[in-house]
Simulated scan of single mutants.
Amino acid sequence: MYRSRCSVTLTLLLALWVRAKDLTDIEALASTPTRCHYMYAYDMYGAHCAGLRLSKIPSLRGGIEILDFSDNRLQEIQSDTLSSYTSIKLLYLSENQIYSIDKDAFAYLTNLETLDLSKNVILELPESIFQMRSLRILYLGGNPLLHLKLDNLDIKKPIKAPLEILDLSDCKLKSLPDFGILPQMSFYNISYNPLTSLDARTFSSMCKLSNVDLTESIDKISLCDLKMTISWFREQPVHFQLKDYSRLNSREFEACPEPEIPQSLNISYHQCRSAYTEIQKVKTYRRTWFTIAGGLAGFLIGFVLLLYIMHRHNVAQTKKLKKTPPKSTSGDTNATAILLNDLS
């Protein structure tokens, strides 16, 4: 789940260690970072500002694609907080004190693919986050007050964000929010929430779902109420993670009536499949046109280059002809004079 996030962090920390490897132990202890450092990770230019206890994002270099601002004291993300860094693709803001996020806080980050807002105290979660056209990974876990907002959050559907990974772990959720159809979702982390229900319709709209983390989230739900969703998981199949599977392996669970999958689940599932197929068609269409455009561009470049070479060749030939002196006619004149003398 956190592999990409941890890998980036480890890469940045390794770069810092390499810079300090020639220091003595005492010097290393005294060299705690006091400002952001810049380095490359995954062929992207990044700024590492984690653990500096900063209350606001400082002025950074332009062109950064990764910003790690975790473990700081940021409290608000206003509309202009990140407006100068439009090239950011990976943004890590975990373990801050964020409670407020403006509606347009991420409007300028049109390339944002990963957003980590975990372990904050978010009270206001803007609906616009779910409309970001490049956002694939969203971490919201560890926000204990987030459920107060999600319960009443009116999410515009369909969601435009192509979410593949969504983390809502440890957010005190009693029921799951309705995100509508999420055709590219593959991993859903809803662990450590006191859920009182687990509606199968939530998951039937995620037709590419392969993993769900339910660790310590379904203990308060009666076994027979879980039967429908567990049956759906097994039919798809979707791997679900629990700390203890004994309840689902019990005789009590087996004794629950076998549910009949309602038509509504199949309808939402097929709607999701149709949406996913359309997305794949668009991707294929774009790849085809990129290939055709690339081929045409290559042909035109080659043709122009050929014309240029021919032009240079013609210019060189013209210059050569101009430099070549004309053949002498003195020999022919003398021969004519001798012939006339003989005739006379």
Results as ranks from 00 to 15, higher is better:
residue 19 R to C: 04
residue 75 Q to K: 15
residue 248 L to H: 04
residue 294 G to D: 02
residue 39 M to A: 10
residue 227 K to R: 15
residue 160 K to V: 03
residue 320 K to L: 14
residue 98 I to A: 00
residue 196 T to C: 04
residue 37 H to L: 03
residue 206 M to V: 04
residue 306 L to G: 12
residue 210 S to Y: 08
residue 123 L to K: 15
residue 137 I to F: 10
residue 86 T to Q: 11
residue 54 L to I: 09
residue 106 F to G: 01
residue 76 E to Y: 12
residue 185 M to D: 00
residue 91 L to E: 04
residue 306 L to N: 14
residue 104 D to R: 13
residue 270 H to A: 10
residue 1 M to L: 13
residue 313 H to N: 14
residue 23 L to A: 01
residue 172 K to T: 05
residue 123 L to Q: 15
residue 255 A to K: 10
residue 114 T to D: 07
residue 216 E to G: 02
residue 66 I to V: 10
residue 221 I to T: 02
residue 144 P to M: 02
residue 75 Q to C: 11
residue 105 A to H: 04
residue 2 Y to C: 13
residue 175 S to N: 08
residue 30 A to D: 01
residue 299 F to M: 15
residue 69 F to S: 06
residue 125 L to H: 08
residue 295 G to S: 13
residue 4 S to T: 14
residue 114 T to Y: 12
residue 228 M to V: 02
residue 138 L to M: 07
residue 327 K to Q: 07
residue 67 L to N: 03
residue 71 D to N: 15
residue 3 R to G: 03
residue 273 R to H: 07
residue 55 S to P: 07
residue 335 A to I: 10
residue 75 Q to R: 15
residue 281 K to C: 12
residue 104 D to W: 09
residue 234 R to Y: 02
residue 204 S to A: 15
residue 154 D to L: 09
residue 341 N to K: 14
residue 316 A to M: 08
residue 76 E to T: 13
residue 157 K to L: 11
residue 227 K to A: 03
residue 37 H to W: 00
residue 218 I to A: 01
residue 154 D to F: 09
residue 148 L to D: 06
residue 167 D to N: 11
residue 137 I to H: 13
residue 338 I to T: 14
residue 133 R to N: 12
residue 197 S to H: 04
residue 209 L to I: 01
residue 339 L to E: 13
residue 29 L to A: 06
residue 305 L to R: 13
residue 159 I to Q: 00
residue 126 P to D: 08
residue 24 T to G: 11
residue 234 R to I: 12
residue 122 I to A: 06
residue 94 S to D: 08
residue 135 L to T: 02
residue 243 K to E: 13
residue 96 N to G: 05
residue 200 A to D: 07
residue 278 E to V: 01
residue 310 M to T: 12
residue 177 P to K: 01
residue 299 F to W: 14
residue 44 M to G: 02
residue 330 S to D: 11
residue 13 L to P: 02
residue 280 Q to K: 15
residue 151 D to F: 00
residue 216 E to T: 10
residue 22 D to E: 06
residue 306 L to I: 11
residue 212 V to Q: 00
residue 334 N to L: 14
residue 96 N to T: 03
residue 96 N to R: 01
residue 337 A to K: 15
residue 188 Y to W: 05
residue 178 D to M: 05
residue 6 C to A: 14
residue 216 E to F: 07
residue 52 L to C: 08
residue 230 I to L: 11
residue 21 K to V: 08
residue 253 F to V: 03
residue 165 I to G: 05
residue 282 V to N: 11
residue 262 P to L: 01
residue 286 R to C: 07
residue 261 I to K: 10
residue 41 A to T: 07
residue 137 I to M: 13
residue 151 D to P: 03
residue 41 A to D: 06
residue 271 Q to D: 09
residue 280 Q to V: 11
residue 8 V to H: 06
residue 19 R to Q: 09
residue 189 N to W: 03
